[in-house]
């Protein structure tokens, strides 16, 4: 019952919450936040699990670093798009209506 397991559990919780947020929330910004939650959860798992199994492992640290960079880039792009979308249409969430090409 190393402390790493605690992180693993937290990571799992974060993943669950983030995933639910991503799928259910309509507001774009909130969805983006949920996406970041999901990302952090995955990173926690990525580090926690190997640490829990066989001690700290430098490889996972490197992976998480890259992961964070990628997540930041993705979030930046999403923000630009959402702002532009709001600027153009004044909407903050994607129209759900019966999309004829659903």
């Amino acid at each position: 019952m190393t402390s790493a397991l605690l992180y693993v559990l937290a990571g799992a919780l974060l993943c669950g919450g983030g995933l639910a947020g991503c799928l259910l929330v309509r507001h774009l910004l909130r969805r983006l936040l949920a996406f970041n939650l999901l990302g952090s959860g995955v990173f926690l798992l990525l580090v926690g699990l190997p640490a829990h199994r066989h001690g700290s492992d430098p490889v996972t640290h490197a992976l998480v670093l890259t992961g964070i960079v990628v997540a930041v880039a993705a979030t930046a792009l999403a923000l630009v798009l959402i702002r532009r979308y709001f600027h153009l249409t004044g909407r903050v969430s994607l129209p759900t209506g019966r999309q004829e090409d659903r």
């Binding site: 995933l19 996406f35 532009r84 979308y85 153009l88």
Partner: peptide, 18 residues
Amino acid sequence: GAAPALEAALRYLFAALI
């Protein structure tokens, strides 16, 4: 692109990120 392109792109982005 105009609004529809943005909307499609956002939808694409979220699906891809998940």
